[in-house]
Every structure is written in C-alpha cells, then in structure tokens.
Nucleic acid binder design. Sequence first.
DNA 1: TGCTTGTGGATTGTTGACAATCAGAAGGTG
DNA 2: CACCTTCTGATTGTCAACAATCCACAAGCA
Lengths: 238, 238
Amino acid sequence: MNGVATISVINSKPTAAIIADKLREGIIEGAFAPGDQINEAQVAGQLNVSRGPVREALHRLVQEGLLLARPNRGVFVQDLTRRDVAEIYASREVIECAAAEIILRGDRDLRSATAERLHAIVDRMQAAIESDDWTALGRIDLEFHTLLVGDAGNSRLVRAYATLATEALMCLTHFPGAYPRPERVLPAHREIADYVRDGDMEVLQRTLHRHLSLTSIDHGPDDGRALVHPRAEAGGDA
Amino acid sequence: MNGVATISVINSKPTAAIIADKLREGIIEGAFAPGDQINEAQVAGQLNVSRGPVREALHRLVQEGLLLARPNRGVFVQDLTRRDVAEIYASREVIECAAAEIILRGDRDLRSATAERLHAIVDRMQAAIESDDWTALGRIDLEFHTLLVGDAGNSRLVRAYATLATEALMCLTHFPGAYPRPERVLPAHREIADYVRDGDMEVLQRTLHRHLSLTSIDHGPDDGRALVHPRAEAGGDA
DNA sequence: TGCTTGTGGATTGTTGACAATCAGAAGGTG
DNA sequence: CACCTTCTGATTGTCAACAATCCACAAGCA
C-alpha cells in the first residue's frame, strides 16, 4: 500500500449507470420537459458514447417510471398528472408509515440513533433554507424520508421507496408551489424525528399522514391531463 | 371492423421482454438454482438471438431483484435467505393492507365487484387443489393478491407488488413446505374476499396479517445463508 | 370533399465483432 | 514454504453497421 492507495477508482460504475444517473438528474432538474422525446443517438452523441449503454440507461429509467417507452417510437418523459402526484404521495405514505412501525417496534437505543440522524438532516435542511437553496432543500427533505425508510432495514421497501423519491423530486421541480412554506418544513420534520425517538406510533402516523397528504390534488377531479402549475391548490410537502 | 378484427398481434412484445419473461419463468420454476450463474452468450445461443436483447432482459431481472449482477463477472440467481423471505412477506403485507384500506374507503358497489372477482379466483384455486396442481395453485394464489392490490387503482403500488409477487413465487418453489395445507387456503381467501365486500377494515387487516406472517422465519436467527428446505419451520402462505 | 393507400424519413430493435476487465492458476523468488 | 508477480481463460462491456417498424404526409380514387 503506497501513496496512491486512495486514488479514486477510475471507472467504478458501468457506463450505463453513469448515463442513467445523468439523465435522471436532467429529468429531475427539469432539463427535459414532460412529454419530450429523448433520442438515443442524440444522447449518445452528446456524451461521446455508443448507443448501447444509452439504450440500457433509458430502459432502466423506463422501468423506474420516469420515462415512457412507446415500442418502435422512442422514449418520452412521463407526464405528471394529478393522479400520478396523488399516487406518488399516497404510496410514500404507505411505505413510510410501514417503516415507522417497524422502527418503533425496535429497540429504544436504535430508535434514538435513528432520531439523531434524522435531526442531523433537519439541521442541513435549515442550512439550505438559510441560503435560499430550494433545490437542495428538496433533496435533503427526501434524504430525510429515505433515511427513515432505510432504517427499517427492509431492502424491498427501500427499493420501492427509491423510485417514489425520485418521482417526488420530479414533482417538486415541476410543481414548485407544492412545497410548503419553509417555516413549516423544519418543525414538521423535527416532530417526526421526535416521535420516532419517543415511540408514539399513533401520533407519528397521523403526522406522517398530514405531512404527505395533498388534499386538494387528492380529491380534485382527475382530467388525465398533466398539471402545469397548480401553485394555488397544492398543499403538501416533499 | 371485419372478421379479422380479432387476429392476435403478430409480435407485440419486443424480444427482450419475451426473453425476460422466459427467464423469469425459469427462475420461478427452479430451472436455475440460487447461486447459479446465467451466461449471456449461452442463453443467446439457446434462444437463437443475439446477446443484445438477452443482456437487456438480464438487466431487467437484476433490477427486479431476481438476479444479482457482479460487475465484469456475470449475473447470478439470487440466494433467498431467511431475511429475504421475511422481507418479502412483510412488504407484501404492507402493500396489501394499504390496498385493502384504499378499496374499503371506496364505493360499496366497487367493493362488491372486487369481492366477486376475488371469489372467482378462489374457485379456480379450488379446481387447482382438486387436480393436485400445486404450481398452478401458487400462481392463482398470487393472482388473488395481485387483483386485490390492482383494484386499489394505484399503479405505483401495483408495480412494487409485482416484483414482490414473483419473489414470493420463487419462495414457494424453493421452500415448498412454506405453503400451508390446502384445506386452510380456501377458507382464508374466502374470508378475505368477504371482508372486502363487507368493508370491515379491522378484521381484514388482522386476517391479512395472519395470512402473510411467517412467524418462525420472521423471528428466527438470520445467519445470512440461504435456506434449503425449512419445511419444519415455515407457516405462511403465498 | 373525404377516405383509402402508397411512400419517405426517422427512430428503435438487432446483430456480430472487438476491447476491457476480473478471478484464479501457474510460475518464479526470497 | 509462503508470498508476490505474471499469465490465461472466460465473461461482460462497448461499438458501429444493418434491418424492421412506425408515423406523417401526400397522391389517387370514389
């Protein structure tokens, strides 16, 4: 072991994974608008790789639900309808509540450890708010919830939640109005962390439900068309 | 609309999807043992196609969790550890209970329609039992639960449940002892269907929990190694 | 005019060849 | 005899060319 031991692995990930991450970022950030077609050859050209890995990356994103593949026609960025947003948040609530229940059945020390890590994330959320970085805030918010699910220790739930988390991020960038005012974000998450530590399932579940319910979207009419900027009617959180 | 209207589409699915289905079947049926390596070139040769679609199919199954890809080494059939089995059934309970709750919040007529279809599936289960077809029974059993989740109308939950269902089928073929005695299967499912119709969430949730809990596996020690035939200790259902 | 029917352009789907990578065996060296 | 280096076989990862497919548009016909 000499001095070069800590050189980062040259190309640890396969190319397809890197491309998938890049594209996922682009979709989340809004670089591709919903409905846009993503052309294999074009992406391959921009990234200076062959169509093979690009194709693989695109198919992965299709399976994640971010893209829609029409056979022999191409892949397109998914539209987010009211129904989709409602589904995403409802599913998140399902998995998060389940994770919470598992965690709360566990040891008190484990719960404290989880709560502590959750609080650490909330502190980072505060920092993001203070520097007016809304993109970062959304990501950290999702990180909070992903940690909650992760600490339940069920990899199946984690996997299912991961795709929901990226979809939720997509919601945030496309419907910026859906994110609540910052002064309510911090207390809400602190509450959740505290209830995890104290082990109060009843209250925790209610809090998560309130935190993740998009009442107006949930009960509004579903016209099947994509939302554009429902700033006035969304009341949920990440 | 003339007489040829019902001609089946020639080749509706892309080759990769067909291959993925074939391989998934093979894995579920046990044609590949856990830990076995699956060779791209070999499969391609057997199916008379190129490595491209095979590669795509394998990656899809990796993402579904059926296969494990070790970079530059190959893809292997996942081992099913105690922990995996516990995770799968716990996750199934989470999603099924959520689906049940959504359905029970719905219209009474819708509930009856769902219950009716569930009962129809139970009848097919009975037929499978009478002809001693255990493979079919497992599939129909999962079909029952998949219908339950599907009728909740949340495509995200459906997608998450689909992979869990295939994993559960894998459990059945690898741990045949995990399936309960047939005389208990039918009443259990009939109960579930009835509670869906009657809208009794409390009881339905308890029934689902009992139906999907693998108590001995759940609380047994997790040595990280794959189970072989825990016939003596498994008490769950599909 | 309105409907059917061919044609064009673009995109994905598929293929076989080539390069990169890794685990393990063989061989050399103190 | 243990350890390190080198080699080898097999497998995945990548690439560019070819084939199949589909939608859009325009021309032909009642």
